[in-house]
Amino acid sequence: MKIKAISIIFVILFAVWLILNNSVSIEYLISGAAIALLISFGFCKECAVFNDLRITPKAFIYTFIFLSVFLWELIKANFVMAKTVLSPSLPINPGIVRADTTLKSKMARLILANAITLTPGTFTIDIIGDTLYIHCVNVNIDDTEEYGKQAVRKFEKYLEVIYG
C-alpha cells in the first residue's frame, strides 16, 4: 500500500513542477524527478492519505462526473447567494442541521465536507464521529433532517465509488 501512496504523490509533485517551470527540457525533467522522488520517499513513509483511492476506469469516470456536478453546484451557489444578498428583504432562514455520512475514508470525508461548503446555502462547521454539522442559510424548520441528508447524498454517491 505504501508504494501506491508514494507513486501518487510523486506524480502530483512532478506534474506541479513541470507546470511551474513551463518547460520539458532534459535538465528540468531529471532534476524534477529527483526532487519529487526524494520528497515522496522522505515524507510518505507513514502517510495514508491516498490509501483508499481506487485506480480503476470506473473511478476515473466517477471523478469526472463528480467534478462536473461540483462545478455546476458552485456556479448555482453563487447565483443563489447573489440573489439572497441583493434582495432588499434579505430572505434567510438559517439553521445548523445534522447529517450522517456512510463514508469511512478520511480523504473522502474531507472532500465531502469541502464540496458541501461550496454548494448552495450549506457550509460544514464540524465533523464529530460519523456526523456532519451543516449550517444552512435557508432551511425550513420542519425538514432539517431531510435537508442535511440531501446535501450529503448529492456527493456521497460519487465519492463512495471513488474511495470505497
Binding site: 432562514n93 438559517p94 445548523i96 442541521v97 445534522r98 454539522y133 432551511v139 424548520i141
Partner: peptide, 12 residues
C-alpha cells in the same frame, strides 16, 4: 436570533 435550529449546540 433568526437561526431556528442549532443541532451542533445541542450535541456539544
Amino acid at each position: 436570533e433568526k437561526t431556528h435550529t442549532n443541532k451542533l449546540k445541542e450535541d456539544t
